[in-house]
Amino acid sequence: MISKMRGWIGWIFFLDMLNGLALTLGYMFSRTITMQYPDKQKWQPYSRHRGHHFLKTNDEGDLNCVACELCAKICPCHCIKVVPFEDHKGNRRPSVFDIDLSRCLFCGLCEDACPADAIALGQVYEMASYDTSDLLVGRDLLRTIPGKVEKGGTVVGAKLIDREGVHVRETKGEHDWWRRVWGRRNKAKVRLRTHHT
């Protein structure tokens, strides 16, 4: 009886609609989950991410790679080209180490096959280019490109730079003023975060 009465009273005073309005009002002043890539923020992938390849170096500053060409053999899309040579220390090293990123499928088999722990897939994922010839990356670029980054799975500050090469540069993290004002109140209530830790 009471629940029936409540239903009627609710129907008369539009309780269901008011509930809906209260919900959307809460969301209106809650933290937004938009990541402002590439203007202000950027996603830093987890360290397990398979992104742009990089070549590791040893303590002496030489490449780990012994140019055994196992990576080129196992590559399912034949996008690695290795040409060996003998360096001044008498070690077998690659004189050419080309990866055609436009054909690579980022399976990581090259990393698994490598006996010298020389090649790995890093967290760099911004490889888009206006020209496919940019996607043919050589030994020296693979050596200088950032390798694994310890912190992963977070949002870092970034800035869009319209220059050749680096397009989005990481900056110190900064926040939007009204997200900071309204975000605090609903942080506990709305459990949607930009980073899933």
Binding site: Y27, S30, T32, I33, T34, D176, V190, L192
Partner: peptide, 10 residues
């Protein structure tokens, strides 16, 4: 945008 937890035009 803010009702849908987005930012809208920025």
């Amino acid at each position: 945008a803010h009702i849908q937890q987005r930012l809208g035009p920025m």
